[in-house]
């Protein structure tokens, strides 16, 4: 059996998530480098027909676990399904998207298989590694590259002996591969025995989900408001964004408070953005927000709390009351004193 890079594919409302397609593209790159095949694993109900699309996007084989009891994501039955297919096919590498689902499901599967896993990688690569203790050389293994210490430090991590080598990879970093209808591949359907015990362990009582209409990914300038802004502050945030020709963003707290719709949310459970300029207004900088904006070229923070963690990831910070600072900033910018202008 060929050595495989397997991608766990997330499906939402019958559609393959973009971040899963990004991973298929990345897996193709790794597979070519390491002489491996690309596998895709899709779990759910009514997901069978997605197999062809995954082949068009670059998968050589698609593993499908299609079961009416798997219609809604639940951790334990999904762990069972993924661990079953991974255990039976012994891939070299398994990649998950670093989403809410991926960051919960992947470590659970890794622990069940007693293998290593690296979280929230910003890149993965294939290379060789010499163990400094034993001198043993490992060829074609997975380099898992990720920020650590709150983003200040990068680390390269390997899993020399255990298989599969597992990682979650941050969404939004790689291009979505072109669709190629001439590609062919193998589809394998699995039926996994799901015990009542794991099916009963978690019951989904309610799902609330808003669809996304605003795309912040291509925005050059984003002005985001947070908990500190309040509904009144958001009027100022919108005014500044409009003045600068930018888009409006928000933290989860602001969305939950109902000041702005989910479309605008930046962060772990929102969008990952990397504009030229990101202006954070009244955002304290919880880790869930920072992961969504820390690749912005220039970060400007306005917050009255000098200790707010957002200042640690900012290029420019204004410590002050946003209700005083923003009107003054808007006034000065309107006077045509745009920096860099004549």
């Amino acid at each position: 059996m060929a050595r495989t890079v397997l991608v766990y594919v997330e499906v939402s409302d019958g559609k393959i998530e973009d971040h899963s397609l990004e991973l298929i593209g990345k897996a193709r790159e790794l597979a070519t480098k390491g002489g491996m095949d690309v596998g895709a694993l899709v779990v759910g109900h009514g997901v069978r027909e997605l197999a062809r699309e995954l082949i068009y996007r670059g998968a050589d084989e698609v593993h499908v676990v299609d079961d009416p009891r798997l219609g809604t994501y639940r951790l334990l039955p999904y762990t069972k399904a993924v661990a079953h297919v991974v255990g039976a096919t012994s891939p070299e590498v398994v990649l998950f998207s670093a989403t809410v689902v991926g960051r919960e499901l992947a470590p659970r599967v890794a622990a069940r298989l007693r293998t290593g896993i690296t979280a929230d990688c910003t890149d993965v690569d294939i290379g060789s590694w010499t163990d400094p203790l034993s001198g043993r050389v490992y060829e074609n293994i997975l380099y898992q590259i990720r920020p650590t210490f709150g983003g200040e430090i990068m680390a390269a991590i390997v899993t020399p002996q255990h298989r599969p080598q597992m990682a979650t990879v941050r969404p939004g970093l790689f291009p979505i591969p072109q669709r190629d209808e001439t590609r062919s591949g193998r589809v394998v359907e699995w039926s996994v025995e799901l015990d009542e015990d794991s099916l009963d362990s978690i019951e989904v009582l309610e799902v609330r989900r808003e669809m996304r209409k605003v795309d912040l990914k291509s925005a050059k300038i984003i002005v985001s408001g947070g908990r500190g802004a309040g509904p009144k502050g958001f009027e100022l945030v919108r005014e500044l964004a409009k003045l600068l020709g930018g888009e409006v963003g928000a933290s989860r707290a602001a969305v939950d408070a109902g000041w702005i719709s989910y479309d605008h949310q930046v962060g772990l459970t929102g969008q990952t953005v990397k504009p030229d300029i990101y202006i954070a207004v009244g955002i304290s900088g919880a880790v869930q927000h920072i992961v969504g904006m820390k690749d912005s070229k220039i970060v400007i923070a306005i917050n009255k709390d000098p200790e707010a963690p957002i200042f640690r990831v900012a290029d420019y910070g204004i410590v002050g009351d946003l209700f005083v600072v923003l009107p003054k900033l808007i006034e000065k910018l309107k006077q045509g004193r745009l920096p860099g202008g004549s």
């Binding site: 007693r114 896993i117 898992q144 200040e152 990068m154 680390a155 390269a156 390997v158 002996q161 290029d315």
Partner: peptide
């Protein structure tokens, strides 16, 4: 199972 191969400081430091 995992080994840290190396760590390095990120070059794009924020101006702060």
């Amino acid at each position: 199972p995992t080994r840290v191969v190396r760590m390095w400081r990120i070059e794009i430091k924020r101006k702060s």
